[in-house]
Design a protein around this nucleic acid. Structure first.
Length: 720
DNA sequence: CCCGGTAAACTTTTT
DNA sequence: GTTTACCGGG
């Protein structure tokens, strides 16, 4: 073998086998940290070198981030023209070409979850469904779930319950409406494309002609629809390479099917399977702990994941009294890491649910440690951004009533509920979308003078902006100005407004960049924008600690990982437990632990603020699945813990230590979240040891440790 | 019609 | 504690 072959450099035997595998189906079962991205990218490079034209290769991933990373690495190996993208954006692109076969316009709108729910809300109003009983989002989620399983309105058999009843009444209407609006939701991007492939064999053939080599990353997270899209893209040719790890399947909640992996062997009998079982990422100790946890799953193929890495440090498991004690503890350790010269980009904090980020953020701010939250409310989900995008959608797709309804009275134009109903009625009667209706003089004439005037100028602005669709930036600038949106958010003053203005100008820059680099006009820009999501926020290398959910952490790795909020009900999540899927939670735990290269810190708190209520928490059951010799247990009460030695913990008055204790004086009126209002009788001690005796209006006198006590001074007005 | 107030419900993970 | 739904006065 030629030792210097750059494509095979630094690869082990299994990896080489996968890269060199010729034609025919290949399944790579790749344990955590075993170099699967490397295998995919090298394999692409190998195909290119062996003369496969780049346009014949299609590599599919789940996140834009993974796609971006893979595209970058393929490019480094010289394959710049290979299409590497997510399932959703590939399908969206294909649907622009062939969606017309199903009656969709080329420039259909792509609805995110929020838009979908807005649409459903409108339909619920129309159907006179009381949306205080059943919420649009619940109906939307259920419909999405059904579509992911491959159901359409006609073959759904529903269970009982108010949500299902609503779904029963609305599913078909929703589908019809989306078609009328020329809009697709995320599920449609996959589902409608599959429908095209199924219903139009000649189209399927054209794709089969084009794509001869298919590579699918994170195969364990594909759902049935995605799997069938793959099969139909492939046709009779068997050049498919899937890479995955059943132990890292964490998207069953959105329809992912581990069954795909089993079916794969059945559907492709001449399948070659390669196992990557050497972990190059974590210390031996971390890997051992992660494997022990996942071994508790019963529906699982035993696998042999090894490492040659050094044993490493034990996992530090910290027990904190309250959420802020946990957060402070973490910040303290991070500060120490940084003081020792650690790279801040190599530090990450994980949590099971978004709401847990807040406390961590507060404490990082307090310690002046720079951080970024990956995911959460993304840039494109902000209100002002969605408003502008909705305006632009209407230009490109005049049938898009949901976007039209969003913006018709933003900024306020005097179009209220009544007027809106009139407009809807007239639009319906004329069989036209709202956009077309308000463009008609005769329809506007039937409205109040005020509304008439506003809508005339709105219609004109749209008409003018339509001439600028060749440039996303120009169309946006014109419209935002003309329609009064800039003035609307212009009132500077509070920092909220400033942030909004900054967001809007960032959107302008983004559009300008798109015009310059891609240049597919407004329609192309909107498609691009609709598929960018939370986890894609660029730049991990900008000198910040990263905070993210465990889901968002998949595919990433860091030297130092803090796994927070390890409590029953949170991780494992109690709702998931109700559905009976502990095993998916355990896989999630496995994923989380295996992100760490050098050190892993885990923590839980004895109390937690959940929906505004301070609740008592038990440590996660997953902790006890880790071998005790892998753990170093600490707690806030330890003298060695965090320098806050020997504090007395008042079991009865267990409260959150949420803020710097305020300066209190004897005689001052204060309030407490549990005990209500009271008067400070006596103060003793200072700093961490400060205690106050407070006589509460109801319930007598108590001695509170101010560090923990949520004692706040109150103002004159509210004091009695 | 608009804006301000108060009541209610709510936190699972993502494209 | 936070965000959203509804109601009543300007």
């Amino acid at each position: 073998m030629v030792a210097m072959d750059p494509i095979l450099a630094d690869l082990n035997d299994s990896q080489i086998a996968a890269v060199l595998h010729g034609s025919g189906p290949l399944m790579v079962l790749a344990g955590a940290g075993s170099g699967k991205t490397r295998v995919i990218t090298r394999r692409i490079a190998r195909l290119l070198r062996d003369g496969v034209p780049s346009r014949q290769i299609l590599a599919l991933t789940f996140t834009n981030k993974a796609a971006g990373e893979m595209a970058r690495r393929v490019q480094e190996l010289g394959g710049s023209r290979v299409q590497v993208s997510t399932f959703h954006s590939s399908c969206a692109r294909f649907l622009r070409e062939h969606g017309h076969l199903l009656g969709f316009p080329r420039d259909f709108s792509i609805y995110d979850t929020y838009d979908r729910d807005s649409c459903i809300k409108l339909l619920m109003n129309e159907a006179q469904l009381d949306h205080s009983r059943v919420r649009p989002a619940q109906v939307g989620r259920r419909i999405s779930q059904l579509k992911n399983l491959g159901y359409s309105p006609k073959d759904v058999v529903l269970g009982m319950g108010e949500i299902d009843e609503a779904v029963d009444r609305l599913f078909a209407t929703y589908e019809e409406t989306m078609l009328r609006l020329g809009a697709m939701d995320f599920d449609d991007l996959l589902g409608k494309f599959l429908e095209v492939l199924r219903s139009f064999p000649e189209v399927a053939e054209s794709y089969q002609d084009r794509f001869r080599w298919l590579l699918v990353d994170e195969f364990q997270d594909t759902n049935r629809i995605q799997y069938e899209v793959c099969k139909r893209l492939l046709g009779d040719q068997g050049n498919i390479c899937v890479v995955g790890d059943p132990d890292q399947s964490i998207y069953r909640f959105r329809g992912a099917e581990i069954r795909n992996i089993l079916d794969f062997e059945f559907d492709f009998p001449d399948l070659v399977t390669v196992r990557l079982e050497t972990n190059y990422r974590s210390t031996a100790l971390i890997l051992r702990a992660a494997i022990e946890v996942i071994r508790h799953n019963s529906e699982r193929k035993e696998k042999d994941l090894r490492t040659n890495n050094p044993e490493g440090e034990p996992i530090v498991l910290h027990r904190a009294h309250g959420p802020s004690a946990e957060a402070r503890r973490i910040a303290t350790v991070i500060q120490e890491l940084l003081d020792e010269g650690g790279d801040i980009c190599e530090i990450a904090l994980f949590y099971r649910s978004h709401f847990l980020s807040r406390g961590l953020e507060e404490s990082l701010r307090e310690f002046a440690i720079p951080y970024q939250v990956v995911g959460g409310l993304s840039f494109f989900e902000r209100r002002e951004i969605k408003d502008l995008v909705a305006y632009l959608r209407v230009i490109v797709n005049p049938a898009d009533d949901v976007s039209m309804e969003r913006v018709i009275n933003v900024p306020p134009r005097g179009i209220g509920k009544k007027t809106m109903e009139k407009i809807r009625g007239m639009a319906r009667q004329s069989g036209q979308p709202i956009y077309a209706a308000i463009a008609r003089e005769d329809i506007r004439a039937q409205l109040s003078p005020r509304a008439r005037k506003a809508l005339t100028s709105l219609a004109e602005a749209f008409a003018e902006a339509k001439k600028l669709v060749k440039s996303a930036h120009q169309a946006m600038s014109y419209l935002a100005q003309e329609v009064g949106y800039l003035d609307y958010i212009g009132d500077l003053g509070d920092p909220e407004d400033v942030a909004r203005r900054e967001n809007v100008s960032e959107l302008h820059n983004d559009a300008a960049t798109f015009d310059r680099d891609i240049g597919e006009g407004l329609a192309g820009y909107l498609q691009h924008v609709s598929l960018i999501t939370a986890a894609d926020r660029k730049g991990e290398d900008i000198g910040r600690v990263s905070l993210m959910t465990v889901h968002a952490a998949k595919g990433l790795e860091f030297d130092h990982v803090f796994l927070t909020g390890l409590e029953e009900g949170i991780f494992p999540n109690s709702r998931v437990m109700l559905e009976g899927d502990v095993e998916e939670e355990r896989r999630l735990m496995h994923v989380a632990m295996t992100r760490a290269r050098k050190r892993l810190w885990m923590s839980h708190s004895r109390t937690r603020m959940i929906a505004g209520v301070l609740t008592r928490q038990e440590p996660s059951g997953f902790i006890s699945e880790i071998p005790e010799d892998c753990l170093l247990r600490t707690s806030s009460m330890d003298p060695e813990g965090d320098g806050q030695a020997g504090q007395v913990w008042d079991e009865d008055h267990e409260v959150d230590y949420s803020q710097e204790s305020q300066e209190l004086e004897e005689g001052m009126r204060v309030k407490h979240r549990n005990f209500g209002r009271g008067t400070v009788m006596r103060l003793r001690g200072e700093g961490f040891k400060a205690k106050a005796t407070i006589r509460f209006d109801k319930g007598g006198e108590k001695i509170l440790i101010l560090q923990y006590g949520d004692v706040q001074p109150i103002t004159e007005e509210e004091s009695w």
